[in-house]
Computed example of a mutant assay.
Amino acid sequence: MSSAVLYLAIVAVWAIVLVPMWLRRDTEQSGISKILHKDAEEEAPEEEEPEEETEVTPRRNARGRAAVIARRRRRTAGLSLLLLTAITVPAAGVAPWWIVAPPVLLLAGHLTLLRVAVKMDAAHAAEERARQAAERIRAREAARAAEAATPQAEIIELSAPAQEEVFDQYADDRRAVGE
């Protein structure tokens, strides 16, 4: 009887690991297609890439971030389900109480790693905000420097023209030309 429970527990653990992998396989490229696409990319002529710090687009980065969060949620749910199963089996009297220890340790370790990951994510976000702020400051300073370097037009003060006599046909003392 105990060997049957042991086999059942092994099958349950492998199901927790393999089912998500099979479900993800439909959405991701399989190993062979990854190799094929990689070979196709290597055979394509390489163009000069701009030398930038990041080549990762924000959209691609967000997609990768969402995948990491989904993976963490699946792992947490799987470990919680494993712990619930490990608690239920000894409660039913099928297995000894100490089989609860490994799932508890796994879940505690996973939650500890999640806590560290959250701190690291916060640190990366703070670094990104600081980098963007420094970039904005550099852009403002560059604009100010360009404005200061732009030559200013020289202002020439024009003097008032000398008063000349203007011919007025309606003036009282009309004179003829040449007078």
Rank of each mutant, 00 (worst) to 15 (best):
P50T: 13
E127F: 04
E52W: 03
A12E: 07
A77F: 08
A145H: 08
I69V: 15
P90L: 01
V5H: 14
T27C: 03
V104P: 02
A149Q: 12
W98Q: 10
A67V: 13
E165H: 11
A44V: 04
E46S: 11
E164I: 12
A70G: 05
A101Y: 06
A4Q: 11
I87Q: 01
A153E: 14
E141I: 12
V118F: 11
A153S: 08
H110F: 14
P161F: 06
A91P: 00
I87A: 12
E141C: 05
L79N: 09
L79E: 13
T112P: 01
P58N: 06
Q29G: 05
A92M: 05
A91D: 01
Y7G: 05
L6Y: 14
E46C: 01
E42I: 14
V116H: 14
D26L: 04
R115W: 10
L6F: 12
V13E: 07
L81T: 06
H124Q: 12
P45W: 01
Q132F: 02
W97F: 06
G93Y: 05
P96Q: 01
A123N: 06
A108Q: 00
S30Y: 01
D39H: 04
R73N: 00
D172W: 11
A171M: 09
R72D: 05
D121K: 07
L8M: 05
V166C: 03
A40T: 07
Q163D: 11
T88Q: 05
A123F: 10
P45Y: 00
L114E: 09
R60W: 08
A176W: 07
Y7D: 12
R144M: 12
A148Q: 14
E164A: 09
Q29M: 12
M1N: 00
S80W: 06
Q152D: 09
G93N: 04
I32A: 06
A153R: 15
R65N: 11
T27Q: 12
E128W: 11
P20Q: 09
V118L: 12
R74D: 12
G31D: 13
V11I: 13
E52Q: 08
